[in-house]
C-alpha cells in the first residue's frame, strides 16, 4: 500500500469515527408505539401560526379578509375570558400575517385587558407593550415571538395558581379560531394538502378529555363546544383516507358558529 493511500484511508476512517460520535448510535427504524403508552406526555397543542405557516406554503392567502376588528363584550366568567383570550391571541397571529399594524396594536391592548380580568395582567403587561411597540415598527417576527410569549406567560401564570383548566381553555380558544380560519381558507380554494392540515384527531381527543374534566364550568358555550367536537371528530379522524371538501365546509360551519359563540354574550 502506498503511503498516500494509507494516509487517506486512515483519514477517512477517523472522519467516519468522528461523524459516528457526533451522530451517536443509530435509532431503530421502527418502534412499537403501544409500548410507549405509559410514558407518553400529553399531546402538544400547536400555535395557530404553525398551521398558518403551512397554509401559506400552499398558496397565497388573503389574510386581510380574516382579520377581526370587533371589540367584543366584557365577560366576567373566567372560563369565557380564557377562551376569548386564546381566540384573541390567534387573531393576533392572523393580524401579523396580514401585516395590519392597527389590528395588532388593538389586539395587544385587548389581550392586556382580558389578562387583567382573569388576574394575570402583571405577567402580560411587558408583552403587550412589546407587541404594540413591534407593530409600530412593523417588526412582524418580533410580534409573532411576543404573541407566543404572551400565551406562554398567561398559561404559566394560570398553572402557578393551579388554574390549569383555564390554561387549557386558552389553548382550546386558539385552536378553534385557528381551525375556523384554516377551514375558511381551504373551503375557498380546496386542495387535498390543505384539507389534510385538518387531520388532527389526537389533538381533538385531547381537548375532549380535558373538557370532560371541567364539570364545574357549567356554561352554555362549554357544552356547545363539547357537542361540536363530537360532530367534528368523524370528519377529521379519517385514518389514511382524504378529507373531502364537504367535511372542510362542515368543520368551517361548526367552528364559525363556535367562534361567534365565544365572542358573543349568551
Amino acid at each position: 500500500m502506498i503511503p498516500f493511500t494509507r494516509h487517506l484511508k486512515l483519514s477517512v476512517g477517523a472522519l467516519c469515527g468522528l461523524a459516528l460520535c457526533a451522530n451517536g448510535a443509530q435509532a431503530p427504524q421502527h418502534i412499537n408505539i403501544k409500548q410507549l403508552s405509559t410514558t407518553v406526555e400529553d399531546v402538544v397543542v400547536p400555535l395557530p401560526n404553525e398551521i398558518f405557516g403551512a397554509l401559506n406554503k400552499l398558496g397565497t392567502v388573503n389574510w386581510k379578509e380574516h382579520v377581526r376588528s370587533d371589540k367584543g363584550p366584557n365577560f366576567t366568567e373566567r372560563p369565557r375570558i380564557a377562551l376569548l383570550l386564546g381566540t384573541l391571541i390567534a387573531d393576533g397571529f392572523i393580524a401579523v400575517q396580514a401585516e395590519d399594524t392597527a389590528a395588532v396594536k388593538d389586539i395587544g391592548q385587548r389581550v392586556l385587558t382580558l389578562a387583567k380580568g382573569i388576574g394575570v395582567g402583571n405577567s402580560i403587561t411587558p408583552h403587550a407593550k412589546a407587541i404594540i411597540d413591534a407593530a409600530d415598527k412593523r417588526k412582524w417576527e418580533n410580534v409573532r415571538q411576543e404573541l407566543d410569549r404572551t400565551q406562554n406567560s398567561v398559561q404559566q401564570a394560570m398553572n402557578e395558581v393551579h388554574d390549569e383548566k383555564l390554561s387549557q381553555l386558552v389553548s382550546l380558544g386558539g385552536w378553534l379560531r385557528g381551525t375556523e380560519v384554516l377551514t375558511s381558507v381551504v373551503k375557498e380554494h380546496f386542495s387535498i394538502d390543505g384539507a389534510e392540515l385538518l387531520h388532527q384527531p389526537d389533538l381533538l381527543s385531547y381537548f375532549q378529555t380535558r373538557l370532560q374534566a371541567m364539570p364545574e364550568f357549567n356554561l352554555p358555550i362549554i357544552r356547545q363546544i363539547q357537542d361540536a367536537l363530537v360532530e367534528v371528530k368523524p370528519l377529521i379522524d379519517v385514518g389514511d383516507r382524504r378529507i373531502p371538501a364537504e367535511s372542510v365546509k362542515k368543520v368551517n360551519e361548526i367552528t364559525t358558529r363556535l367562534g361567534h359563540g365565544i365572542v358573543t354574550r349568551d
Binding site: V43, V44, I51, A54, N152
Partner: peptide, 22 residues
C-alpha cells in the same frame, strides 16, 4: 413553551406532537 422532566440512565420518554405537512 418547552417540555421537560428527569430521567435515569437508559430511560426514555415520549412526547406526542401534532405536525403539519409543509
Amino acid at each position: 413553551d418547552y417540555w421537560g422532566g428527569d430521567l435515569g440512565s437508559g430511560e426514555k420518554k415520549a412526547v406526542r406532537q401534532q405536525l403539519f405537512k409543509g
